[in-house]
Each structure stands twice: as structure tokens, then as C-alpha cells.
């Protein structure tokens, strides 16, 4: 269909890029809200007291590597290599799941240490920002699993590379958002109480 359009670009891919442009403003607002409140920890724990940098570094690394596996999945499908496509898709979904698992673990630890959702403006902003990112990753996992299912039903072939590519764009975008969050929220020196 792409050769029929005025720009020569496919509708779907263009729509995804427009959507990703839109998402920049969404995450920008959430990150700014967090930055505004990183000092407002009231009586609760401060970010510097509670963040576990080594742990988050590992889960950040996991998410970063899932971008590699996603691009390998696409590359395999472009070559018509269905088996490797499935393998890399599955790996990507698993790495994403590990990241989400890490986030669940992080959240429960924080709550145990006294940082609930309603503890302070900082806590609300932190959970909202990382929660929104987590929901994005989870939706990505659902989409990748849907790709896998259609692959096992024999419907994901070389003709469908664009579908994988577009879902991949979404996945990489979620990854670059985490690249920013990891630096700005975790690595920049945080206030302690």
C-alpha cells in the first residue's frame, strides 16, 4: 500500500511516528512534575534515602538490551527467518517482563520502607511517572505477545515486517524514555532527608 500514498510512506508507520511525537509531551509533563516535587518529600523518605541505584541499573540494562532483541526480531523477519523472529520476540517480551518484575519489586520495597503513594508530593509524582512508564512497557509486552500468537497461527510472515517494525518503534520509544528517566530521576544526585 505504501507506494499508493502521496509521500510514499505507509499510513501505519506515519501514524505511529505522529503518536510518538505526541507521547514526548506526555512524558515531558510527567518528568517535569516529578522534578518539581523531588524535594517535596514532607515527612516521608527522600529520593536519596530510598533509591537503590545498583538494582535499578540492572533493570535499566535489561530494558536497554530488550531494544537489541527487538531489532534482531525485526531483522530476522526481514530475512524470512520465522524461527529466529519468534525467538527474539519471546526474548524481548521476557526482558520486558523482567523489567516490570523489577519495578514491582522496587515499588513493594519502597512501600515497606514507608514510601506510599500518598506519603508526599514526591512519592505521588514518582509512582505516577514510573507507573505510567510501566504501563507503557506492559502494553508493549501485550503487543509483542500478540505478535507471537499470530506468528504461531502462521500469520506473521515476511509480508508483515512493517507490523513488527511499528511495534518495535513503540518499544524503542519506551526504552528511550527510560534512558531519560534513569539519568534524570535516579542518577542525578538526589536530595536526602
Amino acid at each position: 500500500m505504501s507506494e499508493e500514498t502521496t509521500t510514499g510512506l505507509s499510513h501505519n508507520k506515519l501514524a505511529m511516528w505522529v503518536f510518538l511525537g505526541s507521547e514526548c509531551l506526555l512524558f515531558g509533563a510527567l518528568i517535569s512534575t516529578y522534578l518539581l516535587y523531588r524535594n517535596k518529600f514532607y515527612d516521608g523518605p527522600a529520593p536519596g534515602d530510598i533509591f537503590d541505584i545498583p538494582f535499578t541499573s540492572v533493570s535499566s540494562f535489561v530494558l536497554l538490551m530488550s531494544s537489541l532483541t527487538m531489532v534482531l526480531a525485526l531483522s530476522a523477519l526481514q530475512k524470512g527467518d520465522i524461527r529466529n523472529n519468534r525467538l527474539w520476540l519471546l526474548t524481548t517480551a521476557l526482558l520486558g517482563a523482567v523489567f516490570i518484575g523489577g519495578q514491582v519489586y522496587e515499588f513493594t520495597t519502597f512501600i515497606r520502607e514507608g514510601l506510599g503513594y500518598t506519603t508526599s508530593p514526591f512519592s505521588s509524582a514518582f509512582f505516577t511517572l514510573t507507573g505510567f512508564h510501566g504501563v507503557h512497557v506492559s502494553l508493549g509486552i501485550v503487543m509483542i505477545m500478540s505478535l507471537l500468537i499470530s506468528s504461531y497461527r502462521g500469520k506473521l510472515t515476511k509480508k508483515n515486517t512493517e507490523t513488527v517494525e511499528i511495534i518495535g518503534l513503540y518499544w524503542h520509544f519506551v526504552d528511550v524514555v527510560w534512558i531519560i528517566i534513569f539519568t534524570v530521576i535516579y542518577l542525578v544526585p538526589n536530595p536526602t532527608s
Binding site: 509521500t7 510512506l9 508507520k13 506515519l14 511516528w17 505522529v18 510518538l20 511525537g21 505526541s22 507521547e23 514526548c24 509531551l25 512524558f27 515531558g28 509533563a29 518528568i31 517535569s32
Partner: peptide
């Protein structure tokens, strides 16, 4: 065209925020 949309989003977000 894709870069344009993405960069517009990033530039707008960075400058506004």
C-alpha cells in the same frame, strides 16, 4: 518526515517544560 515529527515533539516538550 518521521524525524520531523519526533524532533518537533522533543523540541516542543523540552522548550515548553
Amino acid at each position: 518526515m518521521f524525524t520531523r515529527f519526533f524532533v518537533t515533539g522533543i523540541v516542543l516538550a523540552v522548550s515548553v517544560y
